[in-house]
Write a protein that binds this DNA or RNA. Structure first.
Lengths: 207, 207
DNA sequence: CAAAAAGACTGAATGAATTCATTTTTTAAG
DNA sequence: CTTAAAAAATGAATTCATTCAGTCTTTTTG
């Protein structure tokens, strides 16, 4: 059987994670004090810091879970995409966007992004960066699949095009979470507009 | 003559700005304490806060100065660009990148970006966002000029294409400052690679 | 010029994240 | 089963950004 220590550790980690995500959702990231998280998880403040390097680390852990789900959901679109390039790309991106606010508020996204930029060397920041890379790779894979199916011209650098689509959707998402007034619909609409030229031009059959 | 109060205010503002930028450069943003900045500027801590809303505000003020210079320098490229689309776009972008580390370290950029994302409603964040918009508009203007000169096909949505180039260069710059090991040369090279497909496809004379 | 009003300045007090020396619990060794 | 070693947990103390009530300076008014 697993040692007592290992079981207790896993349990505490779960309690802390749940206490933190719950509090973040209820009162927001800033208003959630470590003391409160620790109290809800029934551990001391010091113990919190034995499990997570910082409050930001804790947040990135919750965001990472979210992004992993999104990548999973993307796989089915990548493996069986709409025939039309713009439709396929938009389908994948809209899926990302629609998932994004299920568990996380704009405030939480802002904070998570801020932390991952400011302290890129912490373990959870690396994990976040890796997930970004995985998303980028997924978009590139989609473009490559479309090329294999004859929907994208031969000779196109699919990694470059994928990176461009990804960087665009990512930057636009950043703008989206920065602006409380911006809606998901507008975000999707603008990104689709921006993607159209490249999507059209790489398509087989464009003039 | 200007009132005594106005003169003293301007002088103090200059002293605080210089003390802060100096300390940020010398010891980094995090290690520069408000108390130290105030001491070097020969004012009290409270006075610092009469001039800047927060420590981050102070940093964004210095970044804004930098970005304004870059936009100025970009104007001449936009008004008289190389004939080839990829060359023109790369010329403008490389200019942005080359200027970026003259006054600011990667750490300062990271912190400034983090703050502008996390607290988008503060005055200096708005200024930063506005400058980003101006940069984006400059890239779009370049593409439009190239179209007017017959280097870019008719019918291309130059605002969309400009936004895509800009979001790509901006996201790649973010990745660059996140990674201490990444060089300016590699950044420029990768961005040029990513831009090539779109730049080629919108060019007049592409197959 | 004197008094009042407006504007700045000040630094001690506040509040929250993070640290760290001690204490407690678990595991491993004999 | 003891006991030494290792691992975890603890919470009081520390550190810093930020605030604010009181004081001082400049400007305006009469």
């Amino acid at each position: 059987m697993t040692g007592l220590r290992a079981r207790q550790k896993a349990d505490k980690n779960r309690r802390i994670l749940e206490a933190a995500t719950g509090l973040f959702r209820e009162v927001g990231y800033d208003a959630a004090r470590i003391e409160d998280i620790a109290e809800r998880a029934a551990v001391s403040v010091g113990t919190f810091y034995n499990y997570y390097q910082s409050k930001g680390d804790m947040l990135l852990a919750t965001v990472a879970m979210e992004v992993e789900e999104v990548i999973d959901a993307g796989r089915s679109i990548v493996s069986d995409p709409p025939r039309d390039v713009l439709s396929a790309v938009s389908r994948l991106i809209d899926q990302y966007y629609d998932h994004s606010l299920v568990y996380l508020s704009k405030e939480m996204w802002r904070t998570a992004m801020a932390i991952s930029i400011q302290q890129p060397e912490t373990p959870f920041s690396r994990r976040y960066t890796d997930l970004d890379r995985a998303l980028c790779a997924q978009v590139s894979t989609l473009v490559r699949n479309l090329q294999a199916r004859g929907a994208v011209r031969e000779g196109i650098d699919t990694a470059a095009v994928g990176a461009m689509f990804f960087n665009n959707l990512n930057m636009m998402f950043t703008d989206f979470v920065r602006d409380e007034a911006m809606t998901l619909e507008r975000l999707k609409h603008e990104v689709a507009r921006q993607n159209r030229p490249l999507a059209t031009l790489i398509s087989v059959g464009a003039d």
